[in-house]
Amino acid sequence: TLKVHYKYTVVMKTQPGLPYSQVRDMVSKKLELRLEHTKLSYRPRDSNELVPLSEDSMKDAWGQVKNYCLTLWCE
């Protein structure tokens, strides 16, 4: 499951381990945003700071799954 905080919160079913490009595509379609305006980030467990997502950091983000849910933020 993927939970995304935006102006409102959406929850989507997804497969764990998807690459950033696929996750961003899913989120942009769900929120009806243009792909270039979809910026995603996540919060590591040991931090209060949001970390921007990229293809490289997506593996780390999937490591933050809690209760089968990855929580992301969209700007």
Rank of each mutant, 00 (worst) to 15 (best):
K59W: 04
V51T: 07
S21I: 06
D25V: 07
K29A: 08
L33H: 03
Y8G: 15
Y6G: 09
L2I: 15
L40K: 05
T9W: 06
K29G: 03
P44Q: 11
V23T: 00
V11H: 02
R34N: 13
C74Y: 05
L40P: 00
N48A: 13
D25E: 15
V27W: 03
G63Y: 07
L40G: 02
K30F: 02
Q64N: 12
H5F: 05
D56E: 15
L53A: 05
M26K: 03
Y6T: 04
D60A: 05
S41W: 15
M26D: 04
V11D: 07
K13R: 10
L33R: 03
Q15C: 09
C74K: 05
S28P: 04
A61P: 02
S21Q: 13
T71S: 10
T38L: 13
A61E: 09
H5M: 01
G63K: 15
T14I: 14
Y6K: 05
W73P: 09
L72R: 01
L35S: 15
S21V: 12
Y42M: 02
T9I: 02
V27P: 02
S21M: 10
K39T: 09
E55Q: 07
T71W: 02
R43H: 05
V27G: 07
K30Q: 11
Q22L: 07
P16N: 08
T14E: 04
G17E: 09
Y20R: 02
S54F: 07
V23N: 01
M58R: 00
K13I: 01
R43G: 01
M58D: 01
V4A: 00
Y68A: 15
S41F: 15
G63L: 12
M26A: 11
Q64R: 01
V27R: 03
C69Y: 06
V11W: 07
Q15I: 10
K13G: 06
R43L: 14
K7E: 13
K3M: 11
C74A: 14
E49W: 03
P52E: 15
D46T: 07
K39C: 12
L70E: 11
D46Y: 08
D60C: 08
Q64Y: 04
L72K: 04
H5G: 02
Q15P: 13
K66I: 04
M58I: 10
K39Y: 14
Q22W: 03
R34V: 10
G17A: 05
M58Y: 06
S41L: 14
N67R: 00
H5E: 07
T1L: 12
R45T: 11
L31S: 04
K59E: 15
D56T: 11
P16H: 11
R34D: 15
L40W: 02
T14M: 10
V10P: 00
G17V: 00
N67W: 02
S28T: 04
S47C: 08
P44C: 14
T38F: 12
L53S: 05
D56A: 13
V4G: 01
L40F: 08
L50A: 08
G17F: 11
L53E: 01
H5Y: 02
A61W: 01
L2H: 07
L2F: 02
S57K: 13
W62P: 01
R34I: 03
H37R: 06
Y6A: 06
S41E: 08
E32W: 00
V4E: 01
T38K: 07
M26N: 08
K29E: 08
C74M: 03
W62F: 02
S28H: 11
D56Q: 12
D56C: 02
T38M: 15
Q15K: 14
E49D: 12
P52F: 00
L53K: 03
V65G: 11
P16A: 11
D46C: 10
E49H: 08
V51A: 05
C74T: 04
P44W: 05
A61F: 09
K13A: 11
V23W: 01
V23R: 07
S28V: 06
C69M: 06
V11I: 12
L72H: 05
L72V: 07
R34T: 13
N67Q: 09
C69R: 02
R43W: 08
S57I: 07
P19N: 12
V10I: 10
S41C: 08
E55C: 05
Y6Q: 07
S54W: 03
Y42L: 01
G17M: 04
T14Y: 14
M26I: 09
T38C: 14
K59T: 10
W62N: 01
P16S: 11
D56W: 03
S57V: 10
N48D: 14
E32A: 13
K30R: 14
L33I: 14
L50H: 06
W62L: 02
K7N: 14
P52Y: 05
P19M: 04
P52V: 12
S47Q: 11
L50E: 01
H5K: 09
Y68T: 15
L31C: 11
L40E: 03
P44K: 15
Y8E: 14
V4D: 08
D46R: 05
R45D: 11
Y20F: 09
W62M: 01
T9A: 01
V65A: 15
C74N: 04
D56R: 08
Y8D: 13
K29L: 06
Y8C: 09
Q15Y: 13
Y6S: 08
N48P: 11
C69E: 15
Q64E: 13
L2E: 06
C74I: 01
V11F: 11
L31P: 01
V65I: 09
P52K: 06
S41H: 12
T71Q: 11
E49M: 11
E32T: 03
C74D: 04
S54I: 00
L53F: 04
P44M: 07
V23E: 02
V11R: 09
Y42G: 08
Y42V: 06
L40N: 06
Y42R: 10
V27N: 09
Y42F: 08
S41G: 03
P44V: 13
L53C: 02
E55W: 03
C74S: 06
D46I: 07
Q64C: 12
Y6P: 08
P52N: 06
K66F: 07
R43C: 06
R34E: 15
P19H: 09
V51S: 03
L40V: 00
V11G: 04
E32C: 15
K29I: 06
V10M: 10
H37L: 14
N48H: 10
Q22K: 14
R45A: 13
S21P: 08
S54N: 15
H37N: 09
S57M: 08
K29V: 06
D25W: 06
Q15T: 11
T38Y: 00
S21F: 12
K13W: 05
E32K: 15
S28L: 01
D60V: 07
A61T: 06
S47Y: 07
P44R: 14
R34G: 12
L18V: 12
P16C: 14
L18E: 01
Y20T: 00
M26Q: 11
V27I: 10
V27S: 01
L33P: 03
K39Q: 11
Q22A: 13
L18D: 07
P16V: 13
L72S: 08
D60R: 04
V23I: 14
T71R: 01
S47E: 07
S47A: 09
R34W: 00
D46S: 09
S28Q: 05
D56I: 07
D60M: 06
K39L: 12
R45L: 14
L50N: 08
V23H: 01
L40T: 04
E55R: 02
P19T: 14
A61C: 14
V51R: 10
V10H: 02
E36W: 04
T1S: 07
P52G: 04
K13C: 10
R34Y: 08
K3F: 05
V10Q: 07
G63P: 00
E49P: 00
Q64P: 03
L40D: 06
Q64G: 13
S21L: 08
C69L: 08
P19Q: 04
Q64S: 15
Y6C: 13
E49Q: 12
V23Q: 02
S54D: 15
S57Y: 13
Y8L: 02
D46N: 15
K29Q: 13
Y68N: 15
E49S: 10
Y42W: 14
N67G: 12
C69I: 09
T9V: 05
Y20G: 04
R45W: 12
W62D: 01
V11M: 08
M26E: 07
L50W: 10
N48Q: 12
Y68E: 15
L50S: 01
V23K: 03
C74P: 03
T71E: 15
V65W: 03
A61Q: 08
V11A: 07
Y42E: 01
S41P: 03
L31G: 00
Q15R: 11
Y8S: 13
S47V: 05
K66V: 12
L33N: 06
Y68M: 15
P44I: 05
S47N: 07
D25N: 12
E36S: 08
V51C: 01
Y8R: 12
W62R: 05
G63I: 10
L40C: 02
L50M: 07
K29D: 06
M58H: 03
L33F: 01
P16K: 13
Y68C: 15
S28M: 03
D56V: 07
R43T: 04
Y42C: 07
V65E: 12
M26L: 11
Q64I: 06
Y20C: 02
Y8W: 10
Q15S: 11
E36F: 02
